[in-house]
Design a protein around this nucleic acid. Sequence first.
DNA 1: CCCGTTGCGG
Length: 678
Amino acid sequence: MQSIQWLKRLKPLLLACKDKASIAKVHALMLLTGLSLHLSFNGRLIASYANIGDIVSARKVFDLLPHRGTDAWNAMIIAYSRNDFPVEAVYLYRQMILEGIRPDSSTFTVALKACTRLSDLKTGEEIWDRALDCGYEFDVFIMSSVLNLYAKCGKMDEAIELFDMMPRRDLVCWTTMISGLARSGQPIEAVDMYRRMQKEGMEGDGVAVLGLIQACATLGDSKLGPSVHGYLIRRSLSMDVFVQTGLVDMYAKNGQLELAHRVFKKMPYKSVASWGALISGSAQNGFAGNALEFLVEMQSCGYRPDLVSLLSALLACSQVGFLKLGKSLHGYTLRRFDIDQVLGTAAIDMYSKCGALSWARTLFDKIDSKDSISWNAMISSYGIHGHGKEALSLFLKMTKTNLKPDHATFASLLSAFSHSGLVQEGQYWFNLMVSEYNIPPAEKHYACMVDLLARAGRVEEAHKLIDSMNTEPGLTVWVALLAGCCKNGNLVIGEIAAKKVLELNPDDLGIYALVSNYYAKVRKWDKVAGVRKIMKKTGMKKVPGYSVVDVKGKLHAFLMEDKRHNQYEDIMQLLDKLDHEMRAIGYVPKTEFVLHDLEEEVKEKMLSNHSERLAIAFGLLNTAPGTRLLITKNLRMCGDCHEATKFITKIVNREIVVRDVKRFHHFKNGICSCSDYW
DNA sequence: CCCGTTGCGG
């Protein structure tokens, strides 16, 4: 009886222990009074050590116990599970079974959680079978763990089936289903699940609504998100760091960066993940500058950037061609984290997109444990630089390793062929992908092939390939076909492609620009007007085009008609001078690339005001003669600017490298490395 | 009686 009273008195004491010394003091007291023999008390001691992350001491207590009951085993399994040792947790569960200790509901729950962490469906099902044998058929704790196991292992259908069979469901089970659906790419079903829960008389808490928030983040619905946010406020649900970070992530993913920032600024306590959500959201929506500023701000606020934030920052560098910063970030990240494929792959991508293809290759050769993603990144790198042959030889090298080329590898390879106009190779490997590698061609593979054929002038063949598809051809293949028709002009097929593209209601202004260009090319002015009418409707993604030029390791960004720039006058003067010289050697402005109804002369003026031209002129003005220029554009390079740049390299005798959203263009002596396959 | 289950950024 006395020991129970001791237990009651020492329990809060033990829970309040924040360091090893104070736990050890209580431990010593227990040994002195003989309390250590009390089973449940030992469980608490193990838990206390586990709480402060001292797994070694926890295990020492466990090992020294003369009698180990279910509670002690549970405490040790929980200790492993909580401290990120799922393998050990599962191992201990197995040992417990072998030693004939009877597991209880808690044991199964925690062991299942550990399996979920490991994505080990097989062991999980085995544990669940035993739980059923032990009579825990209707235990909601075990059931929610099983639902979560299925959800995390990508078996959402099984989870739904199981969920529907349950006689009683608590809020945690509903929440598991809602966030499981949201994260497995079924956001609409997640929202439906929430509504179904409400209909059955259950109201969600903050955690459940967070599932809804995640659904909105993947749904990309700019109206549903704020309405869920409003619902959260109306019901005055707890807004902890998790929920608030979820909101930041949701707004950021939907491109509503101002709203994301507003929620973020109001957060009383921020976590590293909150910063990460903001940084990655900015980087992924093309706001590279903001992403990098947030990284700096994060550090000055005393937060240490973790791998996720750093990877997002690397992505931002590769978007704007910020080689200098990208390189130092890569170095910094390497020093802090183990070299792994994720970082390696991100860095390969960054180096190659910043124009340092050979550095990318050096890094690639240095990575010890390359996975197929590393190979794919390197193959794509050759592709965007227009080195189709090198991409192929690297691919062949990969087939000699024990890694199998997958659908993504072939997507990289085929796109490399299309950037280099290697039609025969493309057809050969496309066929082999299906017949030898048993990879069913997906939309992206067809898009590459259509692109390859159509741009090479084989528009009919491209159209036939689309007809042969087993699945409904989507937007990307029709856009590829139309782009080919735009280049080579094919009235019948171009008409079909343009119609299909419009039917699919793209939300990207760039695609409408392509349709408009096509109609302009075949002189169907009424259709051009029709497309422009659609473009004027709001609700479409308006990505402002900008170009960035690297001058002595410093970046300078230009928008179209950037008159605020302090060298604007000089830039315009230089462009004027170049314009005259260009015309003298055969340049004719391609005014069809201007999408407004204006006088020809005004259109020509607009062309020479494009951001890429301003960036080139600024670069020419501020670097020594002969210096290679590197320009990065966030959209496709304008066709007229592409033509003009060829002439400029001839006149100024410089190498100009432009990386647009699709690929690299190395301009030299009046020709471009893309052979006009842009 | 308690424990254990669901939730953030790549």
